[in-house]
Design a binder for these strands. Structure first.
Length: 605
DNA sequence: CCTGCCTGTCATGAG
DNA sequence: TACTCATGACAGGCA
């Protein structure tokens, strides 16, 4: 019912517009011809309206009967036991429901074929012999092929179209309005809605900003609202924008979708997903760098290990025999207390197990007693005056008391004490000459002492050999100022100074190397994780691209069908249809629709 | 004995 | 300028 009213209003409006065209000087014969068609059209519309009214009445009767119950005794229809609406109200409700259904159909739920069918029903003329489509569709202007507007021309304004021979018959504004109304009818709106839905379903960014639209194609003024497809070739885009005939629709799937529809359709701006700058930047960027978990783990690990160091730093040096050997107790205590606060080695955490803090004291007690001078650098010491070894056994008392060790070691180290104890025979095995009759077989299954421990002991032994009055841990880990202060308190010769500097350098470099390797491993792990994320992202994007391509193809197919449908309804003044191979529909900047001949190479003025 | 891994050390450049 | 740190390269130990 409402549809009928709208259609009638539209037809009346078109009629009025045509009458205005008469005033504007439209040719008489055209009007008369169209007027006859118009009357015929109105007659058909009335017939359809009557049929629909009859159908509606029948539906109402059915509905009423459905709400009544046949009284078997009297043979009469009586209302149902359940409350029902009064007949008049029921009719209204039925109408509403039907309207609702119709609205649904013309809305989102309407298929494209239904839209076309509605279009055909609303404009049934011009199907075969009836060329009265000119009544509904504006008498499109026919441009000579030579005036096909190349993209270089500023605009498709008929006023500036240069052809004195056959000046383009500009569609009058009223006719334009009628044309726009036709294109904006619900029958065509459904197509727009379908296009919108398709766009939304494909997650295409819809841009309406004029600055963004067609930024690289300033000459594309023939279709200013043409959806912007960042396609590889701009020139290709230009040419295809000018030729929007139906033949190109299916052949230009990679090209722009021509916009011969009203601007509301053409406002859709489709960007190539591959070029889409909005392509999940956040997630991607967040995945580019190390995951937070890794960073947190690393930092927490560092913090934890630093705390371990903090816990163990104060206790270690104070009970080292070297300290007792050279430093006064209060001096050692003060330095040890100061260590955790201003300990500069922020990356020392990685080497908890092998850092001088953990290894130096115990190794001094155990490994130090092994006299393992296998390192070539220690050869000189080996050949050196036995004072070194004697002093060593003297200072790092072989009669070491376990209680002292436990006091000197942090709890974390104490747990591995047995392991450390087991390493001692291994050192003896490494140097059979030093074996004192102990059988190494019972300890062979135990893990031998680490090289770092051996190296530490070497440095310690060297320091001991040169009578360096500091612990290796202090030499390595003291801040520069404290280290210099400590050095200044003792008169050291060149050899001692060089050794102290080497010990400090090697110790710090060892920790640095450990941290460097740890970071390298973390980088590898992080990159592997990032690689996995990127693979997943690639998979997802490929899937999305495939879906988008499918949707775009379907959309172009529908657009092509609609184009052909609309084009097929166009008639010239004689009622003949235009050939899609010779003409094409184009839209100018102001939304006007033109029927433009296709470019012919052999054009002559 | 060979090989791969781990670790320490050196050299070097950057801060 | 000295120092510290990071890192590649090399070598030794070990399974």
């Amino acid at each position: 019912m409402m549809e009928m009213g709208d259609s009638n209003q539209d037809l009346d409006l078109i009629d009025i517009l045509w009458k205005q065209d008469i005033d504007l000087g439209a040719r008489r014969e055209v009007f008369d011809y169209n007027h006859r068609q118009k009357e015929h059209e109105l007659q058909r519309q009335r017939q359809l309206e009557e049929e629909k009214k009859l159908h509606l009445l029948r539906e109402q009767e059915k509905a009423l009967l459905a709400q009544l119950k046949l009284d078997e005794e009297t043979g009469e229809y009586i209302p149902h036991t359940k409350p029902i609406l009064p007949p008049q109200q029921a009719v209204v409700s039925i109408e509403i429901s039907q309207d609702a259904n119709f609205t649904e159909e013309t809305g989102d739920g309407m298929s494209f074929d239904e839209c076309l069918q509605l279009l055909a029903e609303t404009f049934p003329v011009g199907e075969t012999e009836n060329p009265s489509v000119c009544m509904e569709l504006p008498p499109v202007s026919v441009y000579p092929s030579g005036t096909m507007m190349p993209s270089e021309q500023p605009a498709l304004s008929p006023a500036v179209l240069p052809n004195p021979l056959t000046p383009p018959q500009r569609v009058t504004p009223d006719l334009e309005e009628a044309w726009m109304e036709i294109l904006s009818l619900p029958e065509l709106q459904c197509f727009k809605m379908q296009v919108d839905e398709t766009m939304e379903a494909t997650n295409f960014p819809i841009q309406t900003s004029p600055q963004v639209q067609n930024p690289s194609y300033p000459n594309n003024q023939l279709f200013p609202n043409t959806p912007y497809y960042p396609m590889p070739s701009a020139s290709d885009l230009k040419t295809k924008n000018l030729n929007v005939g139906p033949g190109e629709f299916m052949n230009t799937c990679d090209g722009p979708v021509p916009s011969m529809a009203p601007s509301d359709i053409s406002q859709i701006n489709v960007e190539d997903p591959q070029v889409n700058p909005n392509f999940t930047p956040d997630s991607f960027c967040s995945s580019v760098f190390y995951p937070d978990t890794i960073v947190e783990e690393s930092s927490s690990q560092h913090g934890h290990e630093e705390s371990e160091n903090v816990s163990e730093i104060p206790s270690k040096p104070s009970f080292t025999p070297m300290d007792l050997y050279t430093l006064s107790p209060e001096d050692v205590f003060d330095r040890s207390k100061r260590l955790p606060a201003d300990f500069p080695d922020s990356d020392s955490g990685i080497s908890t197990h092998s850092s001088p803090y953990s290894s130096s004291p115990s190794k001094s007690a155990y490994g130090g007693g092994s006299y393992n001078f296998s390192d070539s650098e220690m050869d000189d010491l080996d050949h050196n005056p036995g004072s070194a070894e004697s002093d060593y056994s003297e200072m790092f008392s072989l009669n070491f008391q376990p209680e002292d060790l436990e006091l000197a070691k942090p709890e974390s180290e104490q747990t591995g004490q047995c392991k450390q104890l087991d390493k001692k025979p291994k050192q003896h095995m490494e140097d059979p000459a030093e074996e004192s009759g102990h059988s190494g077989t019972p300890f062979t299954k135990d893990k031998p002492k680490k090289r770092s421990d051996v190296r530490l002991s070497r440095d310690e032994q060297r320091a001991k050999a040169l009578k360096i009055p500091f612990t290796v841990s202090m030499i390595i880990n003291l801040p520069v100022d404290d280290f210099n202060e400590m050095m200044s308190k003792h008169e050291l010769n060149e050899a001692q100074l060089a050794l102290v500097r080497d010990i400090r350098r090697r110790g710090k470099n060892k920790v640095a190397a450990q941290n460097c390797r740890k970071r390298k491993m973390e980088n590898i792990v992080g990159l592997e994780h990032e690689l996995d994320l990127l693979k997943e992202e690639k998979e997802r994007l490929l899937d999305e691209k495939s879906k988008n391509a499918t949707n775009l193809k379907e959309m172009k197919r529908q657009l092509n069908s609609l184009y052909l449908e609309v084009f097929g309804k166009l008639r010239d003044e004689k009622g003949n249809s235009y050939s899609p191979s010779e003409y094409s529909l184009q839209q100018s900047t102001d939304g006007s629709i033109f029927l433009v001949p296709r470019m012919k190479k052999t054009f002559k003025i």
